[in-house]
């Protein structure tokens, strides 16, 4: 079973790679696709903005604004294929996680390797949810799958841990609640960085910049759309992360270690991430702070999440035994 899990994960990484190539293909043909055009047409952009929450809460995009019938270009077709491969990758990823859990006979988040697999799975699943709800953001798929390939690759190379049982301290339902909410929250934060980066690029493009990173902004949705998507994802993840890291975590720590908060490195970095993301929400709510500045703060939050995911486990020793990098 553990072997199967490893094979499924390898297949998932491959599938993400293929999806990435396909997205890149669409990117190349993007000029002709409906998505590409929709992205730059202000009417549609506004309409896309009209949608609500990030995941389940997304109401269907209203379709009363007529979309002129277009012949599906090659780009469009490649785009659909890319999404298809991406869905396949997510399923393989899920399969890898489930078999891992079955092999260990517990939830698949007992060590750093599994934790990263779970977090990236959430990121990936949320991404697919967003794409299916709003095809216009499909062009971000290239960057989303790139991020996933990099993180999964890093997980396999530096954090791989053979299947093993949990230490007694992890044997608690608060552990499940704590870790699952953090994983979901972090997953959404992680994928939120994709529209954040693209917003900064697109914004530069719209301001007339035509040098390298900004040219990437040519075919992606309008800056306002990206910025709003960024905010939606972060605003959705923030309470989840707050609950997981700052309520469920301390409850479990109290029962297990006798103190609800002890400034263990993992706790320190969760606190830092939380404060930085609170800063992002503040900055976004302050009219005198530019949206680009606010978005940079969100990206800073992303870096602190990476630190928590990889760095803390590698550089510091702490009580969080699942943080041991194999």
């Amino acid at each position: 079973m553990a072997e199967l899990s490893n094979q499924l994960m390898a297949a998932a990484v491959l599938a993400y790679l293929f999806a990435m190539v396909a997205y890149a293909g669409e990117y190349a043909f993007g000029k002709r696709s409906r998505v590409g055009r929709a992205a730059v047409r202000p009417v549609e952009a506004k309409q896309l903005v009209g949608a609500g929450g990030p995941v389940a809460a997304v109401p269907p995009v209203p379709d009363d604004v007529p979309v002129p019938p277009v012949k599906r270009g090659r780009g469009e077709l490649i785009g659909m294929i890319a999404v298809g491969i991406n869905v396949l990758a997510v399923l393989l990823h899920l399969g890898g996680l489930v078999t891992r859990g079955v092999a260990a006979d517990r939830m698949p988040w007992g060590n750093m390797y599994e934790y990263i697999l779970s977090t990236t799975f959430i990121a990936s699943a949320v991404w697919i949810g967003v794409v299916l709800a709003r095809p216009a953001v499909r062009h971000l798929g290239l960057f989303a799958s790139l991020a996933l390939v990099v993180m999964l690759g890093a997980a396999t190379m530096i954090a791989y841990t053979p299947v093993g049982p949990l230490v007694p301290a992890l044997n608690s339902y608060w552990f499940i609640i704590h870790v699952s909410t953090i994983i979901i929250g972090s997953g959404i934060f992680l994928i939120g960085a994709v529209p954040a980066v693209m917003f900064l690029i697109r914004n530069g493009y719209e301001e007339g910049k035509r040098k390298f990173p900004y040219t990437l902004g040519k075919h992606v949705p309008a800056a306002v759309t990206l910025e709003r998507l960024t905010f939606r994802l972060h605003a959705f993840a923030f309470p989840l992360f707050t609950f997981g890291a700052l309520i469920a975590g301390p409850i479990w720590a109290e029962a297990s270690w006798g103190r609800y908060w002890g400034w263990d490195p993992k706790e320190v970095w969760a606190f830092i991430s939380w404060v930085v993301y609170a800063g992002y929400l503040h900055a976004r709510a302050t009219p005198s702070v530019k949206r680009t500045v606010a978005t940079w703060i969100a990206l800073l939050g992303f870096l602190t999440m990476l630190m928590n995911l990889f760095g803390v486990n590698l550089f510091f020793e702490g009580l969080h035994s699942y943080a041991n990098a194999g």
Binding site: A278, H282, A285, T286, S288, V289
Partner: peptide
Amino acid sequence: MRTALVLL
């Protein structure tokens, strides 16, 4: 709010 941001 700006001070709050800086302090955060």
